[in-house]
Simulated assay, not measured.
Amino acid sequence: MSALNIKKGSTSHSAYDLRDPHAEIAGRHTLTVLTDNDPGVLARVAGLFTGRGYNIESLTVAEVDHKGHLSRFTIVTTGTPTVIEQIKAQLGRIVPVHEVHDLTVEGASVERELALFKVAGTGEKRVEALRLADIFRANVVDSTLESFVFEITGTPEKIDAFADLMRPLGLADVARTGVAALPRGI
């Protein structure tokens, strides 16, 4: 370590880039998994991640075909390309799984998340919260004299940005659905 507590070669901008050029870089991936809508499938999918030490950053599940009794899992996880391939292969081996797709590498996709924010405040902070909500196209779904509940949809980055701006204005509580995603086009 140098006197400034900066590791040499810790970034590609360093004059002495000491990183292994062949090392795989972990990245965020959005996976969609089409499964039978049967009891225990969620536990089996979550167990696959837990048993191998993989983290699920976001998980949404809902029945998407009532006649065919099919559910779609949208899973956001982080890993190297090798780890992501292992996850996809292991998911594909679970009996009720029909399809596994990595939307991050398969092409353009649409990702959205829904969040509810309770913001408590009075006076100028209350006015500023309403102004920012309007900029972010957030809807007021509940209001009292002391607080608002805002509903906002968008990318996870948009939701994070809104949360960062609401914290100093009295952010009291947050509920997020997790990412829902589909590939673009046909």
Rank of each mutant, 00 (worst) to 15 (best):
G107N: 08
R131N: 11
F117C: 06
I84W: 07
K125S: 13
L42W: 09
I152H: 09
G154F: 06
I159C: 02
S109P: 01
A163H: 11
F49K: 01
H66Q: 15
V127I: 12
L130A: 12
A89P: 01
L165F: 15
L48P: 00
L34W: 10
L4T: 11
V149T: 10
D36I: 08
V174G: 02
I6S: 14
R44A: 13
A3S: 14
K158E: 11
R72Q: 08
E128L: 08
V45R: 01
N139L: 13
M1W: 14
K88M: 14
A23S: 09
Y54Q: 09
V64D: 03
Y16H: 08
Y16G: 03
T32M: 05
A129S: 15
G53D: 03
V140A: 07
M166K: 03
G185D: 07
R126L: 15
V174M: 14
R19H: 09
D173V: 06
A89Y: 05
G51M: 07
A175R: 14
T78I: 13
L103F: 10
L103W: 07
A23P: 05
Q86A: 07
F117M: 11
G51E: 10
K118F: 06
G79F: 08
I135S: 06
D142R: 04
I75P: 00
S10V: 07
D36T: 08
A180C: 09
H22W: 10
F162T: 05
D17S: 11
L103R: 01
T144R: 11
Y54N: 10
L145Q: 07
R167D: 15
F117D: 00
R19F: 01
H69K: 14
G68I: 08
I56Y: 05
A15F: 05
T78D: 13
A133T: 06
P96C: 03
A43R: 12
N37Q: 12
H66Y: 14
R167M: 15
D17N: 10
K8V: 07
R44C: 02
E151P: 08
F148K: 01
G9E: 14
V95P: 01
R126I: 11
K118S: 04
S147F: 15
E151G: 09
G107Y: 06
H66T: 13
T30R: 03
L145W: 13
D17K: 11
N55K: 06
A181V: 04
S14N: 09
I135W: 07
I135K: 06
D160T: 09
L114T: 00
P156W: 05
G79R: 09
T60L: 04
N139Y: 02
R137P: 06
A62M: 10
L48Q: 02
A120Y: 07
S12K: 15
L132F: 12
H13L: 15
E128V: 04
I87L: 04
D142I: 03
